[in-house]
Amino acid sequence: MDEPMIDVEDLTFAYASNEKKQILSSVSFKAWRGEWLSVIGRNGAGKSTLAALLIGLLQPSFGRIRIKGIPLNEETKWLIRRHAGMVFQNPDNQFIGATVQDDVAFGLENLNMPYEEMQRRVAEALEAVGMTDYQAEDPSRLSGGQKQRTAIAGVLALHPDLLILDEAFVMLDPRSRRQLIAVLKKLKTERELTILSITHDMDEAAASDRVLVLEKGSVAKEGTPATVFSEKTTLDVPFSERLRRLLLKNGRSVPETYSTESDLIKWLCKSNLNT
């Protein structure tokens, strides 16, 4: 297999003002081209710090990060940001343009892209997030969810190899969230886009290829959604697992390990036939 898209080794971070308190300690993981990796964990587990480090907004105290094989540092971070796009939680902090389409075009203008190509990419990105109808509007007048979709379009227009989402879906209604997840899945397959998604949404995590669980700044668990959610943890788990555990606690017979919602429904139907 070729080089990993993200290669994080021994990543450690503490603020200079409080060196004893490590926000992240010795975090190591890889993400491959075309893979969707979800990072989950409670508030304060170090998730957002990890995202900020990955994009070079913070400097690690120790350890290293390689993106597409390039070590991330002060000199390379601008090069790397051409390949990696990031969308944050609060969209209000991310607007520059006077209209939605200007805002989406902003990143492309910085790349000295020909005008026609730019127009094509802006239209395509707005289409992908379902914001075509709003292209001439002032971003500050949009609703929270529309702002968030515009911010995501701005990053998609750059055709990044790597997309880092830091709770980027929180302002979206569930339907737009599902639509966007479908769009990203498509890009993942078609363009081999790598997605690193920091999320509290367990359904979103369950839909990804692999899950990384952060606890108090360390990697507590890593694996497919099925393995991670089966194990006993204090972690929030998908609904089907919560129901399975509740039935188990009440002495009812249940499947032995984590089942997806449709598997658990099948199981319940079958067990009903047998009784």
């Binding site: 409670r42 508030n43 709770e167 929180v170």
Partner: peptide, 8 residues
């Protein structure tokens, strides 16, 4: 509750 984890 936007941005809080399910427990929060």
């Amino acid at each position: 509750t936007a941005g809080l984890d399910p427990a929060g």
